[in-house]
Design a protein around this nucleic acid. Structure first.
Lengths: 71, 71
DNA sequence: TAACAGGGTATGTTTTATCATACCATTAGA
DNA sequence: TCTAATGGTATGATAAAACATACCCTGTTA
């Protein structure tokens, strides 16, 4: 898998979980202290997200980081 | 889990898989095009590794990225 | 027709991951 | 003993993530 698609899938997984939890980008951002303007590139797969940012988001969404890597 | 321990565990998982495959840091680095001097901080959990770097390492080690997040 | 909420974009700044190279210590083999 | 391999450290440069703020568009609703 190429890096572009891989980042896109991670982002899509985050979006899926966020919507499943009925959270807006602002709400998620409030919980994990990340601005929505920074969450959007992550969900769109436009940024090469770091491990700790994934941890913050996973904690906020109450899932395992691994869940973002299940394709 | 705090970020420090989390990064350390990711690194330890990478080290475990690398040793299981009987690869040195240089050999792993050759496969995924990452200098051993840059792999060491990752394995030690001293750097906040990015998603694509984890993908490169996972590909080189022939495992899923998820495997690095199993604690 | 406001006003607001939601998703999304743009951008300048700061921080830091990655790259690349050089170097050190220890250990095993010739 | 010398050499090479291995793990590890240090560092300067470059690319880019994260931060923070401001702004735009669309749909909804008072």
């Amino acid at each position: 898998m190429n890096e572009k698609d891989y980042l896109k899938l991670i982002g899509q997984n985050i979006t899926k979980v966020r919507k499943r939890k009925n959270l807006t980008l602002v709400q998620l951002g409030d919980i994990c202290n990340i601005e929505k303007s920074n969450l959007i590139p992550i969900e769109k797969g436009r940024t090469n997200v770091t491990a700790t940012t994934l941890l913050k988001i996973a904690n906020a969404l109450e899932v395992d980081v691994q869940d973002f890597f299940k394709f």
